[in-house]
Amino acid sequence: MWKFILRRLLIMIPQLFILSIIIFLMAKAMPGDALTGKQMDPKADAKRIEEIRKQMGLDDPVPVQYVHWIKNISHGDWGVSYTHKTPVLDVIGDRIWNTIYLGIATLILTYLIAIPLGILSGRHNDSWVDKLITGYNYIGYATPIFIFALIVLFVFGFKLEWFPTGGTVDPQAVPGTFGYFMSKVYHLILPTLSGALIATVTTVQYLRNEIIDTKIKDFVRTARSKGIPNSKVYNRHILRNSLLPIAAFMGYEITGIVVGSIFVESIFGYPGIGQLFVKSVLLRDFSVVNALVIMTSFATLLGTLLSDIILSAVDPRIRIE
């Protein structure tokens, strides 16, 4: 197991290196740079802007800029945000915990909803319950997350005014108090609900199909022929085997939730790394954009590794060597 994990971690190094080249070239291919916005200001001095561009090395050849960027990263220097005028890691550090809280809450709610629905749909397939849940899945598949989030925000935030429409905490809340904690939870409800209700559809459908396929396998028929009660057949044989792929899929779910947070955070005005990414792209703050993409890619690779480890841990028939 440890050899496998070490080998996978070592493989990530060339993967991230190749990815860094692609990310850097794509950023450079975009029109403009961090100083473009200043050129739109009629009061801006064009000569001064050109001097700043040379000082920042933005006029250097692309390979030179890339080598300089990689050298800085290897020393823990991710550069300075052109927009915030502070180190990139400080900008990301102020927001990453908000995204982590949102991701954990969304993941927990996703499984709390998806697993019971998947079990009901698979166990009672072709019933009216199954048709109702399948209809919910079809609607979820057909609805983009940003459309669904806008509807949730409009109905529960603006029309009914049940929940706040932006931010992470009430400005008047005192840090460290119970009221401050509850305010954080209160601001998490709408973004979490929007992300979870869409994220559940894949897990529900996958679990439903696994249960239906497992019900007709030989070992299940053998268990029933021995007179084992139907509840034990489902719990010990069907459900246990059907949940294995769901457990292994958890690593990918984490990655998907992080990516989906870009839309959710932007719509709900939730100051996380998703919202930061969108703003940084619009403002051509490529030092922040590059850092976020690299970090997200690394999280994706770790999620893939985590899925393999979970599958090996929950299924004794599989051992990673």
Rank of each mutant, 00 (worst) to 15 (best):
P116M: 00
I21R: 09
T214C: 05
I92A: 09
W128N: 06
L243V: 04
K215A: 09
G176Y: 04
S194G: 02
G256H: 02
L311K: 07
I21L: 15
F158S: 10
I238C: 06
N241F: 11
S231I: 08
G272R: 03
G303E: 06
L58K: 04
R123I: 04
Y82P: 00
G227I: 11
L292T: 10
A223T: 14
T304W: 09
N98T: 08
A173N: 10
D94F: 03
I92H: 06
D90K: 13
Q275S: 13
A313E: 06
R123G: 01
L102G: 02
I267M: 07
P171S: 14
D94E: 15
I147P: 01
L132G: 11
L153S: 09
A44Q: 08
Y270K: 12
L112R: 02
V289P: 07
L311P: 00
I115T: 01
Y101L: 15
A248G: 15
R240N: 14
M56A: 05
I267E: 01
D33L: 04
H124T: 10
W162D: 13
P316R: 05
M30N: 03
K232F: 06
I145S: 05
T296W: 02
A173R: 11
L311Y: 13
T192R: 02
K226S: 12
S127N: 09
L120V: 05
D308G: 07
I92K: 04
L150S: 12
V289I: 08
S225Y: 12
I198S: 00
V155G: 02
F156N: 01
L16F: 07
V91G: 02
T255K: 01
I189H: 07
R123H: 08
S183R: 02
V220S: 11
D170A: 15
G76D: 08
T143N: 01
E161I: 13
L58I: 06
V169N: 14
D90P: 04
V91D: 14
T214R: 07
G135K: 11
